[in-house]
Write a protein that binds this DNA or RNA. Structure first.
Length: 515
RNA sequence: CGGGGAGUAGCGCAGCCUGGUAGCGCAUCUGCUUUGGGAGCAGAGGGUCGGAGGUUCGAAUCCUCUCUCCCCGACCA
């Protein structure tokens, strides 16, 4: 293997310790850091810049569906949750609660909540906003003419999870949550599935992250939902990551909050509601989909900078001319359009050697790095590094020398190519790690045994059991540390017997270890 | 929340058992040399040893409590 010659930018390789590698990418790419507050992270400019790119693209698409952005309170009265038993039960164990509004001295130099300032009713820090938005919907909706009501908010939420991991499961995280109300089930279900498709296209487009869109089994539903759909992505260690969800909530929340409308015949009807969201967890998904042993590789569409120019400064009289050349190059590139937007290009003029700065940008995963020296400037050339194909076979960094004008003209195509190749690479890896030939539970157990170490997913025939029968299946999977991810929406024909129940299969499921 | 590990300079670590001047590597700064692919040499700066309390003439080191992180589990749209 020529690989052994390569001096990678990270100290931990994916193959050696995936969890440690993941954390090293985050710190070395300068995306986020530990905050000192339990389970909460500081998202640094590079990580937040990626989030802002996701926000921008997704926000445009959400608005294109007709949804409008709003903002609802961070604090939700406990009584709002109490109205819906299943919902409150689902979140009760992970809610942060505000009980006081003032501190007083404890007489020992410290501060304690003032017993005299105890809130009459505790306030929950929102773990999700169905209840408080439902209360608003009940005020906003009177007539069939008010429907559908399509709202979205970009917000932070808090869930007091026992075990946290940066981006994947933090106590506080950022997300968008859409909440809609409809006249009937048909309309609400159409909204639920439209958004699921929007999420699929967003993941597979801008994020270059292949996903399976499908319906969750009953035991994995959102608390209070009639049906839950998800997009599921395979990480490089073979585990599944739930990357987005869309819920059909039936009339459950409408009943709890009194969301009713008067129909054309003058009768009172309950609304059918939906909710759907994606979060900063997507950043974790991008890391574990595209990262390599040199750090992150950011798909061009969500890269805060798509091209970084590094002048090889010598701290002498030649620097001024070199910087002029680089600045002209920057302008020429910024005038190009790639993937539907102006090319985002940074001229990194900070003092320091280009070789040192190069590795910092490689670890951040900028798609194209240009190192420009005096010889390039004199010859009208550029030296190009493509982040997603970094190494030559001999273990050296793979620079390409190109004519400047030729590179500028090809830059947009190059970025689009990188975007596509990252997707294709991830899709090929995922498809190669799905087993479709497991007909029995013994097969399944063998594939996931300690010895076999099969890391991917299994696609299996499924008879769609519910209730106690489903619980029994869930328990058997749990013994193998497996979970049911979802039933794909692709509508492919199904035959054979469900290995879990022995009954005729009606659909398929994906089974996997999960984050 | 249960079991295990850890917190000492920006980062990575040694020192702790057996209490007695705060150490090393990388990074940073300065100078010189080098310069088309992750530079070399010399010098310098930088630390309430996670926090609080206790034992002691004296605590990074011993004791108690506590906070945070990592791993395994449980939990988790």
């Amino acid at each position: 293997m020529t690989q052994t010659n390569i001096r990678h930018a990270l100290s931990v390789k994916r193959a050696d310790d995936f969890a440690q590698w993941y954390q090293e990418v985050i710190s070395e790419a300068d995306m986020a850091e530990e905050s000192g507050v339990r389970g909460c992270m500081v998202i640094k400019p590079w990580g937040y810049g990626i989030w802002e790119r996701m926000q921008k693209l997704l926000d445009e698409q959400i608005k294109a569906t007709g949804a409008e952005n709003c903002y609802f309170p961070l604090f939700i009265p406990l009584s709002f949750f109490a109205k819906e038993a299943e919902h409150v039960e689902g979140f009760a164990k992970e809610m942060a609660v505000v009980t006081h509004h003032r501190l007083i001295s404890d007489g020992k130099g410290g501060l304690v909540p003032d017993p005299a300032a105890k809130l009459e009713e505790p306030l929950v820090v929102r773990p999700t906003s169905e209840t408080v938005i439902g209360a608003a919907m009940a005020r906003w909706i009177q007539s069939w003419r008010d429907l559908p009501l399509l709202t979205n908010q970009w917000a932070n939420v808090v869930r007091w999870e026992m075990r946290t991991r940066m981006f994947l499961r933090t106590t506080e995280f950022l997300w968008q949550e859409g909440h809609t109300a409809h006249a009937d089930k048909t309309d609400a279900m159409a909204e639920t599935l439209d958004i699921l498709e929007l999420y699929r296209a967003f993941a597979e487009g801008p994020l270059a992250m292949p996903v399976i869109a499908g319906e969750k089994p009953a035991n994995e539903r959102f608390p209070g939902a009639d049906a839950t759909y998800s997009i599921e992505a395979m990480m490089q260690d073979g585990k599944a990551l739930q990357a987005g969800t869309s819920h059909y909530l039936g009339t459950t929340f409408a009943e709890a909050a009194g969301i009713r409308y008067q129909d054309r015949e003058g009768g009172q009807q309950l609304c059918h509601t939906t909710s759907w969201g994606v979060s900063t967890r997507l950043i974790g998904g991008v890391i574990m989909t595209h990262g390599d042993d040199d750090g992150l590789r950011v798909p061009p569409q969500i890269a805060p900078w798509q091209v970084v120019i590094l002048p090889m400064l010598r701290e002498n009289d030649g620097d001024a001319a070199l910087l002029d050349y680089c600045e002209a190059l920057r302008k020429a590139l910024a005038a190009q359009s790639a993937l539907g937007e102006p090319v985002r290009v940074l001229l990194d003029k900070r003092p320091g050697k280009a070789t040192q700065k190069r590795w910092a940008w490689i670890k951040k995963g900028v798609p194209l790095v240009l190192e420009i020296g005096g010889r390039d400037a004199d010859g009208g050339q550029v030296s190009v590094l493509r982040r997603h194909r970094l190494w030559r076979a001999d273990g050296k960094v793979d620079f390409h020398a190109m004519e400047r004008d030729q590179f500028v003209a090809a830059a947009a195509t190059e970025l689009e190519c990188i975007q596509r190749e990252l997707y294709e690479e991830a899709k090929a890896r995922r498809d190669a790690n799905i087993r479709r030939d497991l007909a029995t539970l013994d097969d399944l157990a063998a594939f996931y045994s300690e010895d076999a170490q099969f890391p991917g997913w299994a696609e299996m025939a499924w008879s769609r059991p519910e209730g106690a029968e489903l619980d029994a299946v869930d328990a058997r999977l749990k013994a193998l540390k497996l979970t049911i991810r979802n039933t794909p929406m692709d509508g492919a024909p199904v035959s054979g017997t469900c290995p879990f129940t022995g009954k005729p299969a009606v659909e398929r499921i994906y089974v996997a270890r999960a984050y």
